[in-house]
């Protein structure tokens, strides 16, 4: 099918995009790799799109020794190819490589994926696993939202209708840091059935374990993460089933088992790496 009729505007700056959004009935178009299919199938019929693809600010990269701030407009393929200096010990590049297909990665963006907030999306889970912060700009300026508070549920975020996601702040992982990322897919490039992420940075004390994908917000496993910090991967694996049972009690047993397997493999990958 073809998309329903809509008006198209291209914004030259975030401020211009915000002003257009404030007029109402407008949605942001970034890469359009989720919005495009939805519109072709007439599931989404926005009256107007404001295209932020040409907004230079969305490609800013800034960093200090603890935090890196990545503009929302970078494509998955650019992150995969290492278009900016790596601060994640290779984690972002590998996660990006696993998103959909190269032709989609060449157009889809980091910020677009986060704002779309599909529970199975890789960036949604990665940013929460790293304990990142999202930078959002609206009519009254910028505000920062902790990644765990950004996604409210499937396809629903803390963004209001006149706000644009402009950047993501992520911790710089030290040379001693290890991470594991595992997603269960039956076919390359399809939506994950389950995602497991584990990150441990002895230098900064960062330890996070996350079970993601499927129905809603990613679920963090703080006790397993604490074990990871204190006793390493083996200790974390020992506690994982128990905490998963409690934290993922809302899932059917088969779905819970998929998450546990994904997280276990992420932790195991970390031990091997």
């Amino acid at each position: 099918m073809k998309a329903a009729a809509f008006d198209y505007r291209s914004a030259g700056s975030v401020a211009e995009a915000v002003a257009l959004l404030a007029e109402g009935e407008t949605r942001v178009l970034a890469g359009g790799q989720s919005l495009g299919p939805s519109m072709n199938l007439r599931l989404a019929r926005p009256q107007r799109l404001v295209d932020v693809k040409r907004v230079a600010e969305l490609r800013d990269v800034a960093a200090d020794d603890a935090v890196c701030r990545l503009g929302a407009g970078w494509t998955h393929a650019e992150i995969e190819d290492g278009a900016m200096a790596d601060f994640s010990q290779g984690m972002l590049a590998q996660v990006a490589h696993g998103i959909a297909y190269r032709a989609v990665r060449n157009r889809g963006t980091l910020g677009g994926s986060l704002a779309h907030a599909d529970p199975a999306a890789d960036w949604v889970n990665t940013v929460v696993a790293l304990g990142g912060t999202l930078v959002v700009q609206g009519p009254s300026g910028q505000r920062r939202v902790a990644s765990e508070d950004f996604m409210l549920g499937a396809f629903t975020t803390a963004l209001s209708g006149d706000e644009v996601l402009v950047a993501v702040e992520l911790p710089r992982l030290g040379a001693q840091a290890r991470w594991g990322y595992h997603k269960l897919c039956r076919k390359t490039g399809e939506f994950a059935k389950a995602i497991g992420v584990a990150v441990l940075d002895p230098g900064s004390g960062l330890a996070r374990v996350l079970a993601g994908a499927v129905e809603g917000k990613p679920v963090t496993l703080p006790q397993t993460a604490e074990r990871l910090r204190e006793g390493g991967p083996a200790a974390a694996l020992a506690l994982l089933p128990e905490e998963a049972e409690a934290r993922l009690a809302h899932l059917a047993p088969n779905e819970r088992a998929l998450r546990v397997v994904a997280v276990r493999r992420a932790i195991e990958a970390m031990a091997e790496g």
Binding site: D60, A62, A83
Partner: peptide, 30 residues
């Protein structure tokens, strides 16, 4: 590989901590 984009040094604020949350409520298996 593409040329690496220079990263500008800029003071970044510390990462925000998520608000304290209660554990996910238990539901009946579905």
């Amino acid at each position: 590989q593409q040329a690496v984009v220079a990263t500008a040094a800029r003071e970044a604020a510390p990462l925000l901590q998520a608000a304290e949350r209660e554990a996910t409520p238990t539901l009946m298996p579905a």
